[in-house]
Amino acid sequence: MSRAIRLERQNRRLLWRLGVAAVAMFGFGFLLVPFYEKICEVTGINQLLRPEHAGVFNTQVDASRTVIVQFDANTHDLPWRFEPQTRSMRVHPGELVQVAYEVSNVRGEPVTGQAVPSYGPQLAGQFFRKMECFCFQQQTLDAGERRLMPVVFVVDPALPAEVHTVTLSYTFFEVEGRRQTSEAPPPKAGPRQRTS
């Protein structure tokens, strides 16, 4: 019978080992939680817990430098009143800025217009990053309608050091053929670039 007793003992030992392995794997399941967080942190995926992802804010603001931005508005053969709410402001490169233009249609019928931006000095255009602009789309205003239109932009910190003042100037053109209806196709080569 000693063989049976020995076998019994061997079986029990293996039972305990495997049981401990099972319990350890239960723990391992929970260990996957910090492990997962660590991997996300190291590889930079999915960082929900890092503060800069908690809201939108920019670490690249160059607070040591200030640029004056001037806003200008013109219309070309358009019965619109068009002017910036702010004429001039001081911004740090890298800072997210929002300004607004005011536009109103003084004619007694709907009119569609397209704004085209230009920059002074011209070089500044490639460092002027517009996130949101009414110039991205054609605007149709009803008779007598008045509207506030935002522009959101960042001045790229790479703006050459000798530029101290940037002028952003918009000119509104009437979109031909859209005076009566708003069904006509948009112009083929619309000035829609975001950065120039």
């Binding site: 392995a21 099972a22 319990v23 350890a24 794997m25 723990g27 399941g29 929970f30 996957l32 939680v33």
Partner: peptide
């Protein structure tokens, strides 16, 4: 033995 406990852990969570 290796993975059933992990499932048990997941549903426990």
């Amino acid at each position: 033995i290796a993975v059933m406990p992990v499932l048990a852990g997941a549903v426990t969570m």
